[in-house]
C-alpha cells in the first residue's frame, strides 16, 4: 500500500497508438482460452472426466473378461454349470460390443461435461466477472461466440482424447480373452470418434442452458435432468397403448437416446434413429440451447 502513482509512472506509452481495425473475435477467443486454462476447476473437471470415462470403461471390460473366463471353466458367473454354446455366444456378443463396452464410462462422463459446460458461463455470473468482461468486450455476440467456440474446442479435444484412451485401455483388457476389436473393424472408428463428439455436444448443450439460466446449480441440474434422468425414467414409465401415439416414436427423441447411438447401441430406446441422424437431432437440441442462450444474452442486462 506504499506506492503512490505519479504522473510519470502513468505514462506507459505502451498502448498510446491505437492499432487499425477493432477488437474482435480472435482476441476475444484468446481471452476465453486464457480464462478456461487459468482456473483450477477446469483441470479438476477434465481429470475427473478422464478418470471416470477411462476407469469405468476398464472396469466394464474387465467384468466382461471375468464372465468369459468363468465360462471357459464351464460355469456361469453365478457359479451354475454353463449351458452348451454359452461361451461362444458370450464371446460373439462381447466382441460385437467391444468398442462401446470400453466407452461405457461416457454415461457418467457426460454429466461431468455438463458441469464444465455450465460453469464456463455461469461462473462469470456467480463471480460477477461478466460485468468486467463485458466492459472490456461490449460486443455481446462476439463475446458469446468466442466463448462458445473456445469451450467447444476444449470440449471436443478432451472428449476425443478421453474416448480414444478409454477405447485402447478397454481393448487391451478385452484382448486378454481374445474378444477385443480394432479401429479398422466395422463402425468402430465411428463409435470412438462419436464418443468424443457426443461429449463435446453435451458440453455445448449445457453451455446454452447455462447462458439461459445464468445460475450454476440450476443449469447443472437441468442438464443432468435432460441428459440422464429423462432416459432413465423412460425405461420405467408405462408404454402408451399401442397404436395410440406410440412410445416407439417418442423414445428416440429423448436427447440421450438420440445422441448416444453414435457410440453405443444398447441404450437407445425403442425404434431408434440411425447413429448419425440421431446425433444430428442431438446437435439440433444443443443448437437450440445455444441460440436460446444467445438471444437472452443479447437482450438481458448483464
Amino acid at each position: 500500500m506504499a506506492s503512490v502513482a505519479t504522473h510519470e509512472r502513468l505514462i506507459g506509452g505502451a498502448v498510446a497508438e491505437h492499432p487499425r481495425g477493432r477488437a474482435g473475435f480472435i482476441g476475444t477467443m484468446r481471452s476465453e482460452f486464457t480464462k478456461i486454462w487459468s482456473v483450477r476447476s477446469t483441470y479438476w473437471t477434465l481429470i475427473a472426466m478422464l478418470v471416470v470415462c477411462v476407469g469405468l470403461g476398464a472396469l466394464f471390460s474387465w467384468g466382461a473378461t471375468e464372465r468369459i473366463l468363468a465360462l471357459k471353466h464351464g460355469v456361469t458367473f453365478g457359479g451354475h454349470p454353463a449351458p452348451p454354446g454359452a461361451l461362444a455366444n458370450r464371446e460373439a456378443l462381447i466382441k460385437s460390443q467391444a468398442a462401446s463396452l470400453s466407452l461405457f464410462g461416457l454415461l457418467i462422463g457426460q454429466l461431468i461435461m455438463v458441469v464444465l459446460g455450465s460453469l464456463t458461463i455461469t461462473s462469470e455470473y456467480s463471480t460477477g466477472m461478466i460485468r468486467t468482461a463485458l466492459t472490456a468486450m461490449p460486443r455481446r455476440g462476439t463475446f458469446y461466440a468466442a466463448k462458445a467456440v473456445a469451450f467447444g474446442f476444449v470440449a471436443l479435444v478432451t472428449g476425443l482424447v478421453t474416448s480414444f484412451i478409454a477405447f485402447f485401455l478397454g481393448q487391451t483388457i478385452l484382448s486378454t480373452q481374445g474378444v477385443s476389436t480394432t479401429l479398422g473393424a466395422h463402425d468402430v472408428l465411428r463409435t470412438v470418434i462419436g464418443g468424443g463428439l457426443f461429449l463435446a455436444v453435451c458440453g455445448l448443450l449445457s453451455f446454452g442452458i447455462g447462458a439461459m439460466l445464468r445460475h450454476t446449480a440450476g443449469s447443472i441440474s437441468t442438464g443432468i435432468g435432460l441428459l440422464f434422468v429423462v432416459f432413465i425414467l423412460s425405461n420405467f414409465l408405462p408404454s402408451p397403448p399401442s397404436g395410440w401415439f406410440g412410445q416407439a416414436d417418442f423414445d428416440k427423441w429423448i436427447p440421450f437416446f438420440a445422441g448416444a447411438h453414435i457410440w453405443q447401441s444398447q441404450l437407445v430406446g425403442v425404434n431408434p434413429f440411425s447413429p448419425w441422424v440421431g446425433f444430428g437431432v442431438f446437435c439440433a437440441y444443443a443448437a437450440a440451447a445455444l441460440i436460446g442462450g444467445l438471444v437472452l444474452f443479447l437482450r438481458r442486462d448483464a
Binding site: K35, S38, T127, M129, T132, A136
Partner: peptide, 28 residues
C-alpha cells in the same frame, strides 16, 4: 471502468485476470 472491484473470478490469479481482459483488445 471500475464498477465493482469484486467482479472478478476469485480462482484466477491477478495476472491471468488482467491478461484475459487485455487479450480482448489485443493489448500486449
Amino acid at each position: 471502468a471500475l464498477i465493482d472491484a469484486k467482479a472478478v473470478h476469485g480462482g484466477r490469479s491477478a495476472y491471468n485476470h488482467l491478461l484475459c481482459l487485455a487479450q480482448t483488445n489485443n493489448l500486449p
